[in-house]
Nucleic acid binder design. Structure first.
Lengths: 154, 154
DNA sequence: ATACATTTAATGTATTAACATCTATTGGCA
DNA sequence: TGCCAATAGATGTTAATACATTAAATGTAT
C-alpha cells in the first residue's frame, strides 16, 4: 500500500518530505513486524542487536563502548542491555586485563543457540525484500548513505 | 559515510540485509537529529506527529481513533499523547455529539503557533535531502511502498 | 426490548528509554 | 611523582512506551 493511503495524506510538500515520512513509517513497520518474532523469545530488538554484534566477534571479547559504536541505535544504554543478557545467560562479562575501567563481553553457547533459533525468522524477513531486485536494494542503500552525508552541515 | 563504516560491519548476508539495517540506522539517525529541534520546544516526535495531523484537519475536529490511523507509529497511545498536548494548551478536546464514546480533538492557536516555529527546522531537514534528486526520492518512496506490500504473506 | 459483542477512549502497570550524575581508572604533563 | 582532565561503565531519576484491562456507548441479532 502506498504511503499516501497508509497515513491518509494526499499531498506532500515535496518528494523529500514524502521520503522522510516514508522512511520513518517503513522502519516502524519493519521493527513492529520483527518484534513479533523477538517477543516470543523474550528478547528486545536492542538486545538482539547486541547479541548479533557479540556473535560477529567470533569468540573474541568486545568492550561495552565498542558494542555501542556498532549498534544501530547508538544512544542506547549498552551497559543495561548487557545486564539483561547476563541475567538470561546469553552473555558473559569479565573485567578487561589491559584496562580495568573496561569490561569484556562474550556471547555464551546459550546466546548462540538463541540466535540460531531466531536466524530463520530474520532471514525470512530480509528475503521478503526480494520483491525488489538486488540492484535496487543496493541502490537504495547507496542513496541512504548519501542522505546521511551532510550530517555536520549548517 | 557508508553503513559499513557506520556500524563497522564489512560484509552482509545479502543486499536485502544491508538495506534492512540501513533503513533502521538511517531512520534512527534522522529521528535523533530532529529530536534536537523538538526538545528545545518541549515536545516529542510523537506529539509533533499528532500536531501535524491536527493542523492538517484545517479547523475540523478529528477523533482520537482517526488520529491513530494517520500516525507514523500506529502503536502509540494516542489518548495520552493528546493529554500531553492538552496540558500544554496546544490542543482542545470536546466530546463528540454524534458518538458519545468518541472524543473530538482540535488544534489551538498556541498549537498552530508552535508548528509555525518548528516548520523551518523541519523543512530545513527535508531540504537537506535534495543531495539526491527529486526523481531519486520518488523512486525510493515507491520501492519502500513495495517492500511493505507483502505484509500478510506467509 | 434485551442480551451480547464491538467500538472508543481512558487507565493501570511494568518495562524501557533518555539524560544526568557518580565512581573508578587511565593518560598526559608539569 | 602528583595533579587534573578524559574515559569507561554503572547507577539514579524521570518520562515515555508497550501491553492489558476497564468503562461507557453503540451496534446487532434474536
Amino acid at each position: 500500500m502506498s504511503i499516501e493511503t497508509d497515513i491518509k495524506q494526499k499531498k506532500f510538500r515535496s518528494p523529500f518530505q514524502k521520503l522522510a515520512l516514508n522512511l520513518v513509517y517503513t522502519t516502524k513497520w519493519l521493527e513492529y513486524k520483527q518484534l513479533e518474532s523477538f517477543k516470543e523469545h523474550d528478547i528486545t530488538p536492542q538486545q538482539y542487536n547486541v547479541l548479533r554484534i557479540l556473535r560477529g566477534q567470533q569468540g573474541n571479547p568486545i568492550k561495552v563502548s565498542d558494542i555501542t559504536e556498532r549498534m544501530l541505535d547508538k544512544s542506547s544504554n549498552t551497559s543495561r542491555l548487557v545486564d539483561k543478557l547476563l541475567a538470561k545467560n546469553l552473555a558473559k562479562r569479565t573485567s578487561c586485563e589491559s584496562d580495568r575501567r573496561a569490561v569484556d563481553v562474550v556471547i555464551t553457547e546459550e546466546g548462540l543457540d538463541l540466535l540460531k533459533v531466531l536466524d530463520p525468522f530474520i532471514e525470512d524477513w530480509e528475503n521478503r525484500f526480494n520483491i525488489i531486485s538486488e540492484a535496487e536494494a543496493e541502490q537504495i542503500s547507496a542513496l541512504l548513505d548519501k542522505l546521511r552525508e551532510n550530517e555536520n552541515q549548517a
